[in-house]
Structure formats: C-alpha cells, structure tokens
Amino acid sequence: MPLLYPLLLAAALFGVGLYGVLARRNAVLMLLGVELMLNAVNLNLVAFDAWFADAMHTGQVLTLFTITLAAAEIGLGLAIVLALYRAVRTIDVDRVGEDV
C-alpha cells in the first residue's frame, strides 16, 4: 500500500477538523473538530510506524497515548463547557462574550 494514502487522508481530515473548530458555533462541536484533528495525527503516526517497521512500535504506542490524552482532553473540555453553560446559559461561542 502506498504510504501516501493514509498521509493524504490525514491531511484531509486535519483540514476538515480545522474548519470545524473555527466555524462551528456550538462549543461541543468545536471539541469534535479537535478530535478530528487528533485522529488525523493518529493516522500519520500509525502510517509512519507501519512504513518504518519500528521494533519499539513507537508510532502505535504514541497513538495509544494520544487517544488517552484525547479522552482526558474531551473529559475536561466537556466539564468546562458544562460549567460555562451553567454560568451564562449558553455555549454558543460568539454569544458567550456578549453578556459579560
């Protein structure tokens, strides 16, 4: 399998994720965009690991770490979003600043 396939898929997913982070009004969906970008990174890591045939499985282990960190990140992020919602009764990012 050509190495370029997963790399280009990763680039496309990263672009879509970036668009989501910058364009979605809802804070939870912004976090989803972040998850997409992290997945693009994971794809890269796994692809290079497979291509390199690393004895330490560096790429795949780091992917595991990333997934773990992503889980932690989204846990914290959603907690913050909930706190925000309780504070200003909205999670629309362009309306959060208005009321202050």
Partner: peptide
C-alpha cells in the same frame, strides 16, 4: 480583541 474564542483561534491558525 473580540471576546470571541473562535476569532482568537482563527487568528492563531
């Protein structure tokens, strides 16, 4: 300086 997180993120990007 818009108090809009998304704008900040856009500028950073």
């Amino acid at each position: 300086q818009s108090r809009n997180v998304q704008r900040y993120a856009t500028v950073i990007a």
